[in-house]
Design a protein around this nucleic acid. Structure first.
Lengths: 197, 197, 197, 197
DNA sequence: CATGAATGAGTCTTCATTCAT
DNA sequence: AATGAATGAAGACTCATTCAT
């Protein structure tokens, strides 16, 4: 009889917490963020938090999974008729654009705090797999069209594109003279040089 | 009752602790390593630890500073007559070789746990500065010799070399199909492509 | 919009919850049973639970009071013409039979978790008083008929019968070699020896 | 060099905590006793508590094991030349005497709160086994001397003696009119009646 | 009447650090 | 110098209970 479950409200609240988690983890790291701080940021009681996530760790996993899903969606939304190399470049630029949000950079660093947690390791894997999968598919097609070098497999090329993307974030985090706006353009060039036949 | 303040003994003991710290931090992260575990690994009492380092954080800083110093020494030991580009490649290969020690990769991840700590941020800065400085000097000379592209400043080129190096570690940490032995050779090629005029 | 306050439905629901409480408390103890688990077992929402009982403790009290009432009813239903000693033996056997239900034994243990709660202490008192009262009456009559020893008052004799009954449960709970089926018969003998003149 | 470990001091401190645990658990039950209350009673910091016991549960186990050990010691200290039946009676009286300390009664009840915890179940088992073992040995000898009934095995007789002892505590806890001083003497009589040929 | 989302006080436990020996 | 016992602040998480729907 009582129909108290509003799925929309539930989802909205959940998103609210995920958002707060992203903010806090990015700013102070995973270990540096107490559940109390998390709740303060989200404007909820501590009990409520654990109503939505069984564990502080589970929130981190949810954040990562959200990222993985968004990556998959991004690739899925790409028009099939576009050239594969264009998609690769578009993805790299899309990723660079995300790094404009300092939270993205912060989150990457925050992950270090939870090395070894199998649940997180798996989520990180899913995350990077999503990108590598999308890239691999494009690069396989590009190779068929002889648009990229063929001394490396599509899988390896995808990994190397990610080397650039990940290294890019890393520099953003450690080198104050290295900024997104100044270097974003060179990232495209670096990818071109890396893939050229 | 002669005081036996043996400076050598002191330094040796300190190194012992640094070594233990490197091992533990790499394996379980910074937050995941208790001082108790640290002392167990080093075979000392907890009181002794705080004789050598005022803080757990101070040990991490010491480890980072040791790395920075070794990087500076590495560049200093390079014969001046060698070609500058050779030095760049040698450094990159040297770095890749260090990644063979899983502790190096682990330590990089461990740093995420202490984002925001000014002391650590500064140490990380010193660390990456040491490498960037060494590389910048080489690349400035190489540019003078017109061996590298000139649309980027030596400082920027150095950063981009580090993009590759850091991205390389990152992939090692997340992509199980990406191994040092298999990809180390391609790293050299990637640097060449990146720097080519 | 007719109000459908069906008292039968209400009573049935209440019994359902009492039943669930008996099961849960016996299995996991009082403290070990969360209201959530209670509701799951009863198949109701948490809000509903507090419609029927103001407190988790109130449920325990209700369970105990139910037991006390059943004991009183048991004695009341005994035909007056039966010999008093027979009634004592019948009660003891009746109690032993109840111990066949592991929940009875479990509930006894569960009570320990709430030592000191005045409400529960009172309920436990009511419970044991019900049995002692019934027994005392029989034993007073039996004494009048000179069927039992007279160096102890009927009140004391009743208590001693309960010593046997309670000790019997206690052994069932701790001694794996002591089972209801094997020892139930000896319980009758023990009572006889205890009461004999 | 540093010899900071004073085993006596350690043992004394441990006993202090065990003592505090006995007091608190008996008064408010296991679940009703917070570690904070425990530390307050013992006059130590919370950290110190966990220096001596890894867990609140471990303290309970330690208390039980102490009881089991004392029981074993009690039987071991009995002169072999004494008659076995005398030992049985002496034990029963010894147990009754212990019930003079209200903490003993309280502790028994407190155990109910931890039903199902394997560690505690095992400790309770060890505790009751210690008594049953001691009694069984005496009763076996008594039976050989034809001083007790032979329709029950020594093992069973031991269990039945414990029925009386445990039931005795139970009454003390629930029946306000049933006191140690008044009934202790009758306990001996009950045992005699129970065991008589 | 029935529901379950929301709450926050309270729990056990960890751990960096101090200090007497 | 070296030790490890002692500390208590801080953390993650649980759960009985309330209340708007």
């Amino acid at each position: 009889m009582g129909r108290t479950v509003d799925p929309e409200r539930h989802a909205a609240r959940r998103r609210l917490i995920v958002e707060a988690g992203l903010t806090c983890f990015a700013a102070h790291g995973y270990a540096g963020t107490s559940t109390a701080a998390l709740c303060r940021e989200a404007g909820i009681g501590s009990g409520t938090f654990f109503h939505y996530f069984p564990t502080k760790l589970a929130l981190l996993v949810a954040i990562l999974d959200l990222g993985a899903e968004q990556t998959r969606e991004w690739f899925a939304a790409r028009p099939a008729q576009g050239g594969p190399l264009e998609t690769v470049h578009a993805y790299v630029d899309h990723a660079a654009a995300e790094f404009t949000d300092p939270r993205t950079v912060g989150l990457v660093r925050a992950l270090g705090a939870v090395v070894g947690e199998p649940e997180v390791d798996a989520a990180v894997r899913r995350d990077s797999d999503a990108a590598r999968d999308g890239l691999r598919r494009c690069l396989a097609e590009a190779r068929r069209r002889e648009q990229v070098r063929d001394d490396l497999s599509p899988e390896e090329l995808a990994s190397w594109v990610l080397v650039l993307v990940d290294g890019f974030v890393s520099q953003l985090a450690t080198d104050p003279g290295f900024t997104v706006v100044a270097q974003r353009g060179h990232l495209a060039g670096a990818v071109t040089r890396l893939l050229a036949r």
